[in-house]
């Protein structure tokens, strides 16, 4: 759906993106992550045909963003991290305006049902007569999203859509993005809230210093992370003072630390894959350890930090 080839982008006196290449499959949610200044926003603006790259090529559904930017605008939507709204217009008028300017002023026949549909999708039906200036941050975010999605674009590019939202609003946003994927849309979402990205993303694109560090399936990334030495947490139904000693005899287990004085929960480092973790669990049960749980799922946050701190940037081109 989106193909980026050898993309370079310069700001005066500084190269922001260098040799970026990747491909995004249709009907997937890709998380774009990276530290501040990595070039995420610039990359998104280039994909949305709002910025012209210095060199390289971007094809959105086969359409070149430089050669035919207006067609790309009709195929995709972009919501920036810092967006503006017309505070003195009502929610309905804002969405109507966005629809008319995306579809054309003559599309009256389709306007009413589509606007109703998008207001329902973004849960704004009850607020449609309110002035935008009177809305909360989360509600304004939904208005911006409604404006961006009103023309039913196939590609949705969202820059930090969850920033400033409370946990409930974030959960709603996650649901909405999953719903959009179900509708067949391709999404590229950047965020610093990695736990939330992990909830809905299919793939992860890691950008650092203007280069692609990795681009892979989220499950693969987390599985790889699982092969590294990590900390596991064990919870017991009753105290077992000899647990550290018991664990110390097993392969791959490192230092152990109790959590609190009750000796009913603790963490230890472990090196091994899922199979080895299964063997460890079996051995503990055989030794009569009253286990309630043994887990420490690898998180995107953990993988992200490890990738970024793991070494110098590799050349891009991962896909």
């Amino acid at each position: 759906m989106i193909r980026v080839q050898e993309l370079d982008f310069d700001y005066p006196g500084q190269r922001v993106l260098e040799g970026v290449s990747f491909e995004l499959e249709p009907r997937r949610i890709t998380a774009l992550v990276g530290p501040n200044g990595a070039g995420k926003t610039t990359l998104m603006r280039c994909i949305a045909a709002l910025s012209v790259p210095t060199s390289g090529r971007i094809l959105v559904k086969g359409v070149d963003t430089v050669e035919n930017p207006r067609l790309v605008h009709s195929l995709c939507c972009y919501m920036p991290d810092l967006f503006g709204l017309y505070d003195r217009l009502s929610v309905k008028h804002c969405v109507e305006y966005a629809y008319a300017s995306h579809v054309g002023a003559d599309a009256d026949d389709f306007r009413v049902p589509r606007i109703r549909e998008i207001l329902e999708l973004t849960d704004l039906t009850g607020l449609q007569s309110h002035l935008v200036g009177s809305l909360s941050r989360g509600q304004r975010q939904r208005v911006a999203l409604a404006q961006a999605l009103v023309h039913d674009p196939e590609v949705v590019v969202l820059d930090e859509p969850a920033s400033g939202l409370d946990p409930l609003a974030r959960a709603d946003l996650s649901k909405l993005l999953l719903k959009l994927r179900e509708q067949g849309k391709t999404l590229l979402v950047s965020s610093h809230i990695l736990g939330e990205l992990q909830e809905y993303s299919d793939r992860v694109l890691l950008l650092e210093q203007g280069r692609i560090m990795s681009h892979q399936n989220l499950r693969e990334l987390l599985y790889e992370e699982g092969h590294e030495r990590r900390r596991l947490r064990v919870v017991l139904s009753e105290a077992r003072a000899d647990l550290p000693e018991l664990l110390g005899k097993l392969d791959g287990v490192g230092e152990f630390a109790w959590e609190g004085a009750g000796q009913r929960a603790g963490t230890f480092s472990f090196r091994g894959d899922q199979e080895e973790q299964g063997k460890l669990l079996k051995r503990l049960l055989e030794d009569g350890v009253p286990l309630v749980s043994l887990e420490q799922p690898a998180s995107l946050q953990q993988a992200y930090v490890r990738r970024l701190r793991g070494g110098p940037p590799k050349p891009s081109g991962a896909s």
Binding site: L50, H73, C77, F83, S101, H102
Partner: peptide
Amino acid sequence: DEIKGRTWDAQRMSVL
């Protein structure tokens, strides 16, 4: 004012 109010990008994305 549209640029300062951060509404200009949305207008550029329209098909007008």
